[in-house]
Design a protein around this nucleic acid. Sequence first.
RNA 1: GGACAGUUGGGUGAGUUGGCUGAAACCACAUCCCUGCUAAGGAUGCGUACUCGUAAGGGUACCGAGAGUUCGAAUCUCUCACUGUCCGCCA
Length: 414
Amino acid sequence: MIDLKYLQKSFDEATQKLSKKGVDNETLENLKQLFIGLKEANATLEEAKAEQNRMSKLFGQYKQEGKDIGELKAKVDANKEVIAVLQAKANEAEEALQNVALAMPNLPDERVPVGTDEADNIELKKVLEPRTFDFEPLEHWALAEKNGWIDFERGVKLAKSRFSVLRGEAARLERALINFFLDVNREKGFEEVCVPYINNAAMLQGTGQLPKFGDDLFKIEEEELYLIPTAEVPLTNLYHDEILNENQLPILLTAYTPCFRKEAGSAGRDTRGMIRQHQFDKVEMVALTTPEQSDQIFELMVENASDILTRLGLPHRLVELCGGDLGFSAACTIDLEVWLPGQNKYREISSVSNTREFQARRAKIRFKEGKKNTLVHTLNGSALAVGRTLIAIMENYQNADGSITIPKVLEKYM
RNA sequence: GGACAGUUGGGUGAGUUGGCUGAAACCACAUCCCUGCUAAGGAUGCGUACUCGUAAGGGUACCGAGAGUUCGAAUCUCUCACUGUCCGCCA
């Protein structure tokens, strides 16, 4: 959630920043008014309550002293009705504010380029030269069929479209990648954790998936529980509503989890192959830091994801997302895109974001800074998306006969 | 799933004949003092959120969540959630 006090105080600056994300002035003006309205409503309500408390105290005194309480009771009863009305107004104001505030995206950082979509993102650098083929490289689904690695039909039979089954070497490679990723992350100082794949609504609101993006989540019927769309949710919310000690920070976490997404709004995109699935494996990094540490940790996370790709010998590039392509919670994001020779283009394989205090405010994660409680910064990034890495290996390591070479670093994991 | 018990501040844990308790005590933590030597003694401070105020200092709310009774509830009533123990079931 954005800082409403900041919005009120520095309204012009906030509108200018949020215009990068396509939020118009009117929406922000409305939010500001709702905030001011709530404060006013609360002020009058609290005044009435204070009066009520004073009279209640007197009430007890009078009774003890045996004084007549008839007049006081009349006053108190009258005030009670006033409070009920004011309370209703305040509740209404609160709800109206929350509805708008929780749907407001994070402020982008200064350095985020202006732009509306993918096309306006800025390439920062390329790592590793794509190899040249002396034959026409195939796309991963063709390779999958040749090698019997992915069973798309049976995946659909078991569940529905956008589900698939990995078989034999592919299944082993998937597992090898998970272990490899976790090991590298652990080397870099991330604590490995194993978390629930089902989280409750409060957690999803904490990281920003709810209330606005519930359509993209698989919900458990009859319960306020959801399959996680990313390990970012349980990892970040591990410290939901907690106050940490400054010396605990930074907290670096990594976890392997499957991820579940409805992919609402992606109808028709990447329908062929395994790029976009309802269920996919991912190893995620999450960091909780002080505001001072977060830029440095952000770099660490980007470099780590890039390092993993380099160790796998996968050509990739780093892309700074423009305002329009930035996620809801992110203040800045660098995507890592891996080269897919079969598709002849770079495709997203990791996304590292700094949400600053946006999620921390929602999830109430603070740390003691002297006597003060300060919101932490939360960061998240994939290291890496496992299925897409598998695809990248298939396409980059394919041979003329359709066979696939296993990258050296993975040999000991197979 | 059945039976009983519980849910208080960072921790342990008082408080359940409704007002003097936002909450004792102890521990932990912070600052200071004493002492001198590795183990202790003393003082003070120490929940969260919002809000008013330059500040000092006020106000409101919160004792699992929600609703109710009452002038007034951590304390009474109801609903729900969670935890523990026993039983059943099970990887």
